[in-house]
Every structure is written in structure tokens, then in C-alpha cells.
Design a protein around this nucleic acid. Structure first.
Lengths: 355, 355
DNA sequence: CTGAAAGCGCTTACAG
DNA sequence: CTGAAAGCGCTTACAG
């Protein structure tokens, strides 16, 4: 009777030998499928336990053609919004027996391409991607035959060929602007995070992802509707980093006629805006009202508590996984979701100080 | 001449046939090893490109016995400290050709056991773990034959058998306490995060991880040295959540003789402490001085800017990977690291208000 | 320089 | 109810 060699992990065949059955029978007993007598099953289980047998999922995946692994390509793992999404993704996926391979791109399209390639080589069953660019998306479409299902998270692009899960940021941005206007603001600025620019710029760069465009257009539509001016003087498109947002905000606030309110489209923008404003001696809400996208945990504890656009981040992540799993089941399945975002009014917006 | 079937991914054999060579030759050309004539190599590369060939890493891993994957089991992916560590882990690992499988445990020991089992079944080459418990660590030691190398991140346990990378939190906690004392504080409280308690408790639970003990002992040693009382009245051991820290802090601050200073051992504790203090009308620094572990991005923008114990989080993550890779190379390699932490003095500590 | 063949550890039709 | 055998897609000694 052969024992498992001591220096190697026990294999199915070691278990089978110890239980004195064939590999097929051992596999059936262990897998809990097919027909096995109770006595045989117990013998196999005992042998497996004694040998501390762990199935080799690599081999299983080879055979079955499914790796039970989902690749997640995220633009910015430092951002707490994406972290929360990843948390939900991990939870939902592991509930369905899938594990998560995470790659970070820092919004670099080259890293994104590379990440997708690596994940496909690892034979992930599907991909959840927060894309860096609106137009450089070939690697997300034609990646391989057979197609690996892809769902975009948070950001959508203009291709009909890729499904996405995002929030209604157009409406949310409009609501934020209307909230500022209702408080009496007429000079309202935008600090917009986008991967499409190196540092920052007063005009919208080409090829920003749909989500960024939505936010800007939502704001612009509200400006038009309220007959408010939207001056490039008050707006900056920034690479998503606190430092760059800080610089951009400093420029805005030191301009001749600075805005009295600012909409920051993510956590980094908010942190940069707040840092710059405080550095220049602006009191938040009295001198500068602010609304930030995403309910980062600190926004509640900040004084004054920040009014935020709250997006259902856990649901976003969970929905992306659910959609992806359906696409994995049925490769012709197509569906995208737009979840509602909601303005949470706290205390960072007040009437502008009389001049 | 056979073509790759249209509905399936091209395999090595499809490339080989198209280039009219054997699989062995195609593999050598593609892999860039062994001997191949330039002409053959080009033919193979061309065929691979035409068929959009992607090597199947699953098969490669089976054959080579290395999955080029590292498993990361993290206790709390919402905590920005761990997120930053993961970021560094991903970066360092992918630089060395390894990918990262991330599982989250919410500090639940059962989830941790399960995570380790799943990762071993996926045949990860090594494991980086932020362990939930000090004593329930069998699953980290005897997990399988041959042993899968493990490096603990941030938290260490008392076993000599497991390597770890952590920071010198004993010294850091002592320094924080001395800083409070130097400002004139005599009633100093501790808000200590630990997975070893359901909600919160004034006494140290059994089996807290070494890192937690270090922080407490570092503080206690400083108290003794300074001849300061350490009252359980001012201290709570909390499950690592903002809500629970908030509750615990409320209890502390509403006690007859509340502390004038508080050391919060992570981001959640800090957020909870701040929330509770503000809710009760305590001015931060005037009524309650505070030092928090870890330099979360918001601590700089908070008013007053928070004094923090800054730990080299990126280096922690990178070092864990480096150490793990060495252990993967040489399974007898043993090494642990304790990196320096540093008190960053900002403005959240001032003299206690005269009573 | 190139190819035939074995083998990594599984699962699953097929036969009995 | 159980087993012998093929095959998933690679790589690598071995032979030529």
C-alpha cells in the first residue's frame, strides 16, 4: 500500500490508494456527486482527512475549463469608494464560489491593457474593470476567443458592446448644482477627476469616460436651466490625486473672482479642495460651500459635516458580480444597470457670505 | 493545415500547426528559451499573433508546479491602512511576475480558516495574512505538505514558526503617551482595536494579537515610567468598527472623570472617537487631545490636523512580498522585520484646559 | 536545431 | 456501484 510521499501534497491518487479504490471513485466520493456506497464514501473521506488532502483547483480548472476566478482591474485602489466596491465584489463573488484577482492600474491605460492580458492568461472566467479611458477600449472587447465576459464598474464608455454598472451621476450632479443655487450661490466651480489629463486643465480633455462626462453635463444642464454662468475660471479637470486637486484648487481660489461653491467629483478632489481652501484661510461653508461625490467615512466627522452625493457602492459592486455571473453562465446575456445616487444634505453648504 | 476552431481560444498546438512545427518548438519560440532558428521563431510568433494566442497559465502552472499567485488574507479591507498595504503588495508582486488573490475576513477566524483553505486549493505559491487571532493559528502553520510559505502582515502572533513584518508599535505607543504627558495630560485613555472582542470592553481580552498587546504594553510602560495612573475607566478594547468605537468613546467621555487625551489605535477608532467627542460638544485638542495610529489621508485636512503615528505602510507591504518571495525560493529561509513607526506632531494635542 | 512522448492532477463519459 | 482510460494545455528531458 502506497503512502503519499512526505514532502509533497497528497493527490487524489494517494487518497484513492489509501482507501483502496480507483481515482474515479475517490473523486466521486470527495466531490459528492455520482454514485458511491456509504461505506466507500466514508473510507475515502477518512483517507483524505488522514492525508490532509486538498484538491488541486488548478487541475480541476484545467479539466473543467472554469477557473472560478474573477479578475478585477481597478483604476485607483487608494480611493475608498473603490475599496468599498471591492469589498462587496469579494463578498458577493465568494458567496458564489468565485475568488478575486485584483490588479491596480493607477489610471494608466498601458497598465490596464497589461492587466487584462495577464488575467486572460490566468483564464479568469470574467472581468470587472474600472476603465481609464473612453476610447482606448479594444483590449476590453476583442481580448480573446471565446470572449471573456466583461462588466465595467462605475465608469461606462460609449461602446454598445460592453456592459456596465454605474450610477445616475448626471442627475446627481444636477441636484448638487441646484442645491448650491438654492442656497444663493451663483459662482459655482467644479473639480472633476479624470484619468485623461496629466495634471489639471480648465477645459474638458478628449476621451473622458462617460461617467465623467455625465457629471459635467449634469452640472452644465443645471447651470443652463438656472441661467447661471459656468466659467472655466472656476473649473478644473484633474488627474485623480489629492496633490493635483490641491494645486488646481489653489489656482481657482486665488483667481480674481473665486467661486463660492465647489462640487468635487471624488474623494481625492474633496481632500485637495479642502486642503487648499483651509490653507488659504477660507472657512468651509461660510467662505466656500462644498459638495463631494461619495460618502467617504471621514466626511461625517469633518466639521462642518460634508454634504455628499451618496452612491450605493456596495450594491454597485454586488450588481457587477451578479451581472458578470449571468454572463458567464450565458455568453449571450447582455445587461447594464444605472443605480440611483442621492444627495445627502449635511452642513457644508450655506448661503455665500455677502460681499 | 488545421486552423484554430473559431469558438475556442487558440492553443499551443494551433500555433504549432499554423507555423508547421511541433508543440515543443512552438513552446521554445514563444517562451524564448532553448534553441530555435530565427526563421522558425518568426514563423511561430507570426502564427501566434494571427491566432491571438494567449498562453494558458493554468496549464503552465500545472506543469511547472508554481502558480505565480500570492494569496492575501486581510482582516479589514475597508481600513485605508490595509488598502495602502495591498496597493504596495500588488505593485511589488506584479513587478516580480506574481498576481494577487485577495480575500477579506472581517476579523472572523472562521472566514480566515476558510480563506486559507481556498487559497491553498488554488495552489498559491505563498500567503500574506493579517491574522485575526493570537492563538487560533494552526491553519497558518500546518496547512499543507509541502508547507506553503506564510508571512504575517502588520500583526504578529507569538509563534516562532511564523514570520512577520510589522512596526515597532510598542515604542510608538510609548512616544505618543509621552507626548500627551509633556503637554500636561494626566488622564490619558486608550481606544484599542482588536478582533478579540465582540463589541467593547474595559479590560484586555485574551488572545489579542501581539501587535495589539505591544501597543497597550508600550502605553502602560510609559504610564509607569511617568508615574501616571492607567484607569480602565478611560480605556476600551473595541471591535474594529467606527460605530463601536463611537459607542465606547461616548461611554468614556460621559464617565464622571473623563480623560483629557485619547490614543486611538487605528482609523476606525479615530473616526469613532472624533464622532463621539464632537457629538458631546468636546472641542478637539482644547477639550480632548487625540493621537491616532496611521496617517489616513483625511487626518491632514481635519481641523485641527491630527497628530498621528505614521507607519511605513507601503514599505510594510513591499517588505512582506520580498520576504515571501525569498521563502518561496528557499523554503528554509526565515526572517521577520520590525519597521520603525514615527510620531508626527500636528495640532490635535494641546495642554488640557484648566479645570 | 527539432520532434515524439511523458506527465502535472484532476474529471467524466463509457463499459462492466 | 466501480474502474480503466482519455484528455484539459502546457513543458521538458530525451533522442535524433
Amino acid at each position: 500500500m502506497t503512502q503519499a510521499p512526505n514532502d509533497k501534497a497528497a493527490r487524489l491518487i494517494d487518497v484513492a490508494r489509501r482507501a483502496e479504490v480507483s481515482r474515479a471513485t475517490a473523486a466521486r466520493a470527495l466531490g459528492g456527486y455520482g454514485l458511491v456506497t456509504e461505506a466507500t464514501r466514508e473510507r475515502v473521506m477518512a483517507a483524505a482527512a488522514e492525508l490532509n488532502y486538498r484538491v488541486n483547483e488548478l487541475a480541476r480548472s484545467m479539466r473543467s475549463g472554469r477557473s472560478l476566478t474573477i479578475g478585477v482591474v481597478v483604476a485607483d485602489i487608494s480611493n475608498s469608494f473603490f475599496t468599498s466596491a471591492i469589498r462587496a465584489i469579494i463578498e458577493t463573488a465568494s458567496g458564489a464560489g468565485y475568488q478575486i484577482l485584483v490588479l491596480n492600474t493607477d489610471d494608466d491605460i498601458e497598465k490596464e491593457r497589461n492587466a487584462v492580458r495577464v488575467l486572460i492568461e490566468k483564464r479568469v472566467d470574467g472581468l470587472i474593470v474600472v476603465p481609464a479611458s473612453q476610447n482606448e477600449i479594444e483590449h476590453l472587447i476583442v481580448q480573446s476567443e471565446p470572449e471573456v465576459p466583461v462588466v465595467l464598474l462605475d465608469r461606462r464608455v460609449d461602446s454598445d458592446e460592453i456592459d456596465f454598472v454605474t450610477t445616475d451621476d448626471r442627475a446627481a450632479a444636477g441636484e448638487a448644482i441646484r442645491h448650491f443655487a438654492a442656497a444663493g450661490h451663483v459662482r459655482i466651480g467644479l473639480l472633476v477627476a479624470t484619468a485623461s489629463v496629466e495634471k489639471y486643465s480648465p477645459t474638458m480633455p478628449d476621451h473622458v469616460v462617460g461617467t465623467v462626462r455625465d457629471r459635467v453635463e449634469g452640472a452644465m444642464a443645471a447651470f443652463a436651466e438656472l441661467e447661471l454662468a459656468a466659467s472655466p475660471q472656476w473649473t478644473r479637470f484633474c488627474h485623480s490625486s489629492v496633490e493635483i486637486a490641491h494645486e488646481a484648487m489653489t489656482e481657482i481660489l486665488t483667481s480674481p473672482e473665486p467661486p463660492t461653491a465647489i462640487l468635487a467629483t471624488n474623494e481625492e478632489m474633496a481632500l485637495g479642495a479642502l486642503g487648499a481652501a483651509q490653507e488659504l484661510g477660507f472657512e468651509i461653508s461660510e467662505d466656500l460651500s462644498i459638495i463631494a461625490f461619495d460618502e467617504a467615512p471621514w466626511t461625517l466627522v469633518f466639521r462642518p459635516p460634508l454634504s455628499v452625493v451618496k452612491r450605493p457602492v456596495a450594491k454597485l459592486g454586488a450588481t457587477a458580480v451578479e451581472l458578470l455571473l449571468k454572463k458567464i453562465e450565458d455568453n449571450s446575456y447582455r445587461s447594464s444597470r444605472i443605480l440611483n445616487a442621492q444627495l445627502v444634505v449635511r452642513q457644508s453648504v450655506t448661503a455665500p457670505r455677502a460681499r
